[in-house]
Structures are given as structure tokens and as C-alpha cells.
């Protein structure tokens, strides 16, 4: 089967500084592909470069079409759902407005979103900035799931969330993955183990490793220690990646 996303020789720049170099990989048309690596290796930059939020060169093919010269809003309209790191909900807009803004199809899938996130229906009149981190993440995911997409790009959806919420997010992602392929940046290796099919590992702005099976990669102690700085033994209580989002305090209380 043809990959949904094919990236070749991608370079990206922030303020004139090159942040990723000659990155090439592809995302299969089904399942979840994990994009892994230590902090600061260019995972977020890769995602942003794919949709043109930062300057880039190289080629990006979405469903066989070259998109690397297009503007961000056009790429998104071709069928890309983007869930950014740190959620980036519009804090001064209500939940309902946040969702309304994200609707780009003629028939947005409001019902699906309402079923997935009943909590958001209750809070539709509330300002998104007053939601808890987990609720904001739901808004951010809902914005992407409202539309029919060819691929979802999801950047650290469990960052800074309490363990119970992490599991909720993971379940939602698993549900979504049944219908749409996902490129997922994730620091929580348990979540990766649970969800991901393939894996791409970055190191120093380059692709250091690609694996058809994320589980196989995570089982390789030598590789994971070298590329991620940790080894997840799969026994559940994995050591959090040093300095990764999992170690940060979880602001779970609604302000």
C-alpha cells in the first residue's frame, strides 16, 4: 500500500538556524507511526515543517501530491489534522468557538466529537483558557477530529497530563487510528508501546533509525538507551525519559 505521507530530504529552519537536516521517512496509510527521540532533536520542528509553519526545503508528499511549496492553510485543507504541542487552544474563545473555528468541511462530524468528548458539550460556553490541561487537550484533539482527514499530526498529546487522563487520551487516539493514519510524537513510552505500529527515531536533527515495529525497537535496550536515553522494560512502571514531559508537574486542576 502506498504511504499517506512521504518525506524526503526535509530541512527546516527557525530564525535562520537549521533545526532538522535531510530528514526522510514515510508514514503508512494505516495505523499510528511514532516519531521518537530525546528532547530538542527536532520532532516538533519536523511536524511544523511538514505543514509549513516553519521554513523548509526538501519534498513532502501527501497522498501522492507534492505539498512542500504550499501555504499552511492550503496544506491543512488538503486533509491534514494538526494537534500541536501544548495544545494551543484559543484561551479567550469559548470551547464552542474553538470548535466552530476548526470546522472546515461542509458537514463537520459534530456528533462524533460529542460522543468522544461529552465533557466538552457541557462546557461549551466556557472560555478555553479556564479549562484544565486535560480538557484543553480534548479541545485540541476535537478540533482535528471534526473534519475528514487523510492524516493526523499529533504532537505530545499526553504532555503534562495526570496518568488517568493520559489513558483517556490514549484510548481516544486508538479509536481515531481505526479510521485515519496518525503521525504521533510521544515521550511516554508506555503510550507508544500501546498505540504505535511503526517508529521513526530522530537524533540531532536527522533520522537515526526507522522501525516497522515500535515494540521491537523499544525492546532493544542498547538502541533505546542510545537514542532515547532510557530503556522501557515494558513491565509497566517505565522510567520517565530524562527531562521529558512525563517528568513535569501536571497542572490538572482547573484554574
Amino acid at each position: 500500500m502506498k504511504p499517506i505521507l512521504n518525506i524526503a530530504g526535509l530541512n527546516a529552519f527557525i530564525a535562520g538556524q537549521q533545526v532538522i537536516e535531510d530528514v526522510s521517512f514515510s508514514v503508512p496509510a494505516t495505523g499510528i507511526t511514532a516519531l521518537l527521540g530525546r528532547n530538542g532533536v527536532g520532532k516538533t520542528s519536523t511536524i511544523k515543517a511538514i505543514i509549513g509553519l516553519i521554513g523548509r526545503t526538501g519534498t513532502v508528499e501527501l497522498d501522492g501530491q507534492r505539498i512542500e511549496k504550499e501555504e499552511t492553510h492550503r496544506i491543512i485543507r488538503r486533509g491534514v489534522g494538526y494537534v500541536p504541542e501544548d495544545r494551543e487552544v484559543f484561551s479567550k474563545l469559548t470551547v464552542a468557538e474553538n470548535l466552530k473555528l476548526a470546522e472546515r468541511d461542509a458537514h463537520p462530524r459534530r456528533q462524533l466529537v460529542e460522543e468522544l468528548f461529552p465533557d466538552l458539550v457541557k462546557r461549551s460556553g466556557q472560555l478555553a483558557g479556564t479549562l484544565s490541561g486535560g480538557q484543553q487537550q480534548m479541545v485540541s484533539l476535537a478540533r482535528a477530529l471534526l473534519n475528514e482527514n487523510k492524516v493526523l499530526l499529533i504532537d505530545e498529546p499526553t504532555k503534562g497530563l495526570a496518568p488517568k487522563i493520559v489513558q483517556e487520551v490514549a484510548d481516544t487516539l486508538a479509536q481515531a487510528a481505526a479510521t485515519v493514519p496518525i503521525l504521533l510524537v510521544e515521550q511516554n513510552l508506555q503510550v507508544v508501546r500501546q498505540l504505535a505500529d511503526g517508529a521513526v527515531v530522530l537524533s540531532g536533527g536527522r533520522v537515526a533509525h526507522t522501525a516497522d515495529s515500535a515494540a521491537d525497537f523499544l525492546a532493544d535496550e542498547d538502541l533505546t538507551r542510545r537514542l532515547l536515553g532510557v530503556h522501557d522494560d515494558g513491565a509497566g512502571a517505565a522510567a520517565p525519559a530524562a527531562g521529558s514531559g512525563a517528568g513535569e508537574p501536571a497542572p490538572e486542576v482547573a484554574r
Binding site: 529552519f13 527557525i14 530564525a15 535562520g16 537549521q18 509553519l53 516553519i54 521554513g55 526545503t57
Partner: peptide
Amino acid sequence: TATAATARQIPEEQA
């Protein structure tokens, strides 16, 4: 030149 040209397109928020 390509690098310089790209650097210019970078949105400021990222800088």
C-alpha cells in the same frame, strides 16, 4: 541563497 530565502518565510512566532 535557498537558505536565506527560506529563513525569510519563517513566521515570527517561531523565532
